[in-house]
Simulated scan of single mutants.
Amino acid sequence: MNEADDKGSAECRARTSPYRGSQKHKNRPIETRKGTLCPEWTHRVESGGYAGDPFQHDWTMTAAHRMFEASIEWQNGRRRFATANGIAFEAKLSGDETWHGYPIPWESVPAEILRSWREEGKVSKRDLRLYRPAGAGDLHWALTSDVA
């Protein structure tokens, strides 16, 4: 397979995946308002990190996509919740029938889901203490998991 074929197949996978990240939650410059920023490990692929174009990125090869696939549907499928590396994530539909996700405080996870994750050992007391916003405007709190 040549490089052009490989790029084409990555673009095809990116288009067919129900998950596609949003610039709003990436630590990259944009002109619109930012939301809580996603750690780099959520969108890293074997060839490197996120280059800045959510339409060209191979989301099927990311931790974000794997979390989306394993997520728990909530509110008749309008919201989805997942956890990895001690952080909770929520996914919502984007305006183009794809989904995007972002880190959320543990208090925002429905109690029933959080209880299930605690029973399954997916979340520890340490996680609940460690990964949370420092204040209302703190968009960077989840980036500390990139150090781990």
Rank of each mutant, 00 (worst) to 15 (best):
L37S: 00
A91Q: 07
G49D: 14
E90Q: 15
A91N: 02
W141E: 04
A136F: 11
I104E: 06
H140F: 10
W74L: 00
D5H: 07
P54F: 03
R129F: 15
E69L: 12
I87E: 08
A136T: 13
A134P: 00
K34A: 04
R132M: 08
T32K: 14
R33C: 04
W106L: 01
T62K: 02
R115G: 05
G95R: 15
G95T: 10
C12D: 13
G52C: 04
C38G: 03
P29Q: 07
A91W: 02
N27Y: 08
A4T: 12
A4I: 15
R115T: 11
H100L: 02
R20P: 02
T98L: 04
C38W: 01
D53P: 00
N85L: 08
S17R: 13
H140Y: 13
G121E: 05
I30P: 00
H140T: 15
V45D: 06
W41C: 05
G86K: 08
P39A: 15
H140K: 15
H25A: 07
P39E: 05
I113T: 08
K7R: 15
A63H: 12
A111N: 11
P105S: 12
G48I: 00
S47E: 15
G21I: 09
M67H: 10
Q23F: 07
T36I: 12
C38I: 07
W41E: 09
S71D: 04
I72E: 10
R115W: 03
R129N: 14
A4Y: 06
A88E: 09
Q75K: 15
M67A: 10
R20L: 05
A84P: 01
G8D: 11
R13D: 06
G52R: 05
R129M: 13
K92L: 12
S71H: 02
A63L: 14
D127L: 01
R33H: 08
L130W: 14
C38P: 00
I87W: 07
V45L: 06
T98C: 12
P105T: 06
K92C: 11
K26G: 01
Y131V: 01
G95V: 09
T83I: 06
R118P: 00
F89A: 08
Q75E: 13
T60S: 14
G101H: 04
D96Q: 13
G121R: 07
G135I: 07
H57E: 11
N85P: 02
F68S: 05
S9G: 00
K34I: 03
M61C: 12
R115Q: 10
L143A: 04
D138H: 02
T60W: 15
P29W: 06
G95C: 04
A84K: 10
T62S: 01
A88F: 09
P29I: 06
K122G: 03
L130D: 14
G21N: 02
W74H: 06
T98G: 05
P39V: 01
P105M: 01
A111P: 09
